[in-house]
């Protein structure tokens, strides 16, 4: 395929596939902990970070990283204090959108660039941006591999993990920080509004057919990477926006997985009739 000889397509492919493969690895833990929307909220905060970056004149990545890390610390604090919970989450995230829009309009020329980061611009990446994405993804990958056992224990049962001697507080903070890294890493390619979709949808699809946690994780990463490749090529062929078509392909995978699951069950229910 000669599309793959095009430089911008190569860059888009690397960035989208890497982010979409790594996001579900983190998503497996986030979804199991019942915090599917944390990534989405982080995207709102990163939006404020990007706006702030344009206002003060630093790289968007730096602003997004700074504010999401701060938000991760704030979230960890409120979650641990157990007081405001849901409400303080909402406060932080809506505050992010409001501040982001304010910063962006103040910075004048930055507004279009900021809005571009909401939905990503996979086809306009520089190799420098691709390198930053790959570096962030590597950090996330190393963290997930190193912390796999403790993270599984935490995701499955926090109290039991604590009694098993897992340093639960530090681990929760680390997981929140890793979510922030995924969101910032996916910002250029998939955009702040859709990157968290890749943390959740491939996991939901894999969970339909897998029979173990490890298998769910691996399959989700494969579904994420596959959706990115197929979605990107489809976007190029159909002149569509890459982030949308990638997420829609992932949702298609989810639908296929639910059908596969239903088919697997049917023979057992109707077994006596068939045989």
């Amino acid at each position: 395929m000669d599309v793959l000889t095009l430089g911008f397509m190569q860059r888009a492919l690397v960035a989208c596939v890497v982010v979409s493969a790594v996001a579900p690895l983190v998503g497996t833990f986030v979804v199991q902990r019942g915090q599917s929307l944390t990534g989405d909220g982080m995207g709102h905060v990163a939006f404020a970070g990007v706006g702030l970056a344009f206002l003060v004149g630093v790289a968007p990545l730096v602003g997004a990283l700074a504010l999401t890390v701060l938000a991760a610390l704030a979230l960890y604090r409120t979650e641990r204090s157990g007081l405001a919970g849901d409400l303080s989450l909402a406060l932080v995230f809506y505050g992010g959108i409001a501040a982001g829009y304010l910063f962006a309009t103040r910075s004048g020329g930055g507004l279009n660039a900021v809005l571009g980061l909401l939905f990503g611009s996979a086809l306009d990446l520089t190799w420098g941006q691709v390198a930053a994405v790959v570096a962030l993804a590597l950090v996330v990958l190393v963290a997930v591999v190193a912390l796999y056992g403790p993270l599984v224990a935490l995701a499955f049962d926090e109290s039991a993990a604590r009694v098993a001697g897992v340093p639960v507080d530090g681990l929760v903070l680390t997981l929140t920080l890793v979510v922030a890294l995924v969101v910032v890493g996916g910002m250029y390619a998939l955009g702040l509004l859709l990157v968290s979709a890749m943390m959740v949808i491939p996991v939901a699809a894999a969970a339909q057919v897998a029979t173990s946690y490890r298998a769910t994780m691996r399959l989700a990463a494969a579904i994420g990477a596959g959706s990115a490749a197929v979605g990107l090529l489809a976007a190029y062929a159909g002149d569509a926006t890459p982030a949308s078509s990638i997420v829609l392909v992932a949702i298609g995978c989810y639908v296929v997985a639910t059908v596969v699951r239903a088919r697997r069950r049917r023979p057992r229910a109707a077994g006596s009739v068939a045989s």
Partner: peptide
């Protein structure tokens, strides 16, 4: 109760998480 599929083996193994710490199997 588990949101995602988890095998019996994985549940039992998770009891070792504190003893194993990082990286180790």
């Amino acid at each position: 109760a588990s949101v995602l599929p988890v095998s019996v083996d994985e549940v039992v193994r998770s009891g070792l998480a504190g003893a194993l710490g990082l990286w180790r199997r």
